[in-house]
């Protein structure tokens, strides 16, 4: 426990309180609630990036259908890669430290989108000589490149949350089914919320910069949550 910060010590004390007063079932309940909240918010952040991101790309690549196609495609590629790599990492170290750091970086990237992305997108669009007709191939692929350079990494990292949380939550092999089911469900419900909240509410009320910065902050917060969940797990272990 040498690395635990004062705040973590405080939380640990709270949990000991829990353990004494209500038995270990409550502690598990708190841990589960944290895990589900984390995957929910992770799913939420991914879909905010997808919907708001498509809107962001439209100004450079136009209203062509390819913008939506590539945004959906790229986000799905990032998700599948994130699931795969996240699962491998989770098996290697069950402490969520690495994930926390990755989420912190991803949050930084997301918050930085309004500052750095325009230069990358300009490079993609303006590399075609002025006044020349862009080949059909690049008309289709350019938006995908744009989605990839801006949104791939953040979505890749956000996708790692789910397998990590399954690894942490599934203490016994017999429970893997229901645990992973719960986590899939919470993450997807989060994504559903992300879609509708961004489409119906965020885009009408807030500037794109504000939305990206808030999502970045949320992702960093998720890094903190993951760290806490991982720490909580090791803290709980000796009593079992």
């Amino acid at each position: 426990m040498a690395r635990a910060a004062p705040f973590a010590k405080f939380l640990h004390a709270v949990e000991i309180g829990f353990r004494i007063s209500r038995s270990s079932v409550s502690v598990c309940f708190v841990q589960t609630a944290f895990i589900l909240a984390t995957v929910f918010l992770g799913g939420f952040a991914v879909m905010v990036l997808e919907i708001v991101g498509a809107r962001y790309l439209l100004k450079d690549f136009g209203g062509a259908f390819y913008v939506w196609t590539s945004q959906i495609g790229v986000v799905l590629v990032a998700l599948s890669a994130g699931y795969y790599v996240g699962g491998r990492l989770a098996d290697r170290s069950q402490r969520a430290d690495i994930l926390s750091w990755l989420l912190l970086c991803a949050g930084g990237i997301i918050a930085g989108i309004p500052h750095f992305a325009q230069r990358l997108l300009d490079w993609i669009v303006l590399r075609h000589p002025e006044g020349e007709v862009i080949p059909q191939f690049w008309i289709k692929v350019d938006p995908a490149l744009g989605s990839a350079v801006v949104f791939f990494l953040p979505c890749f990292v956000l996708a790692m949350i789910s397998p990590y949380m399954i690894r942490i939550a599934a203490e016994k092999l017999e429970h893997v089914g229901s645990v992973s089911g719960k986590i899939y469900a919470a993450s997807t419900v989060g994504s559903v919320a992300g879609v509708f909240v961004s489409g119906y509410f965020l885009l009408d009320r807030f500037e794109l910069g504000t939305i990206f910065r808030s999502t970045g902050l949320l992702t960093m917060l998720l890094g903190g949550l993951c760290w806490f969940i991982g720490w909580n797990r090791t803290a709980l272990k000796p009593t079992r």
Binding site: D60, F61, G63, V125, H128, E130, G131, E132, I134
Partner: peptide, 23 residues
């Protein structure tokens, strides 16, 4: 082409630009 993408890349100057693009 998309109107904005086309306009951004063209060197041509116009005496009038007329917009009537809706979904």
């Amino acid at each position: 082409a998309d109107g904005r993408v086309y306009l951004r890349r063209t060197k041509q100057k116009y005496d009038a630009i007329l917009l009537d693009a809706y979904t």
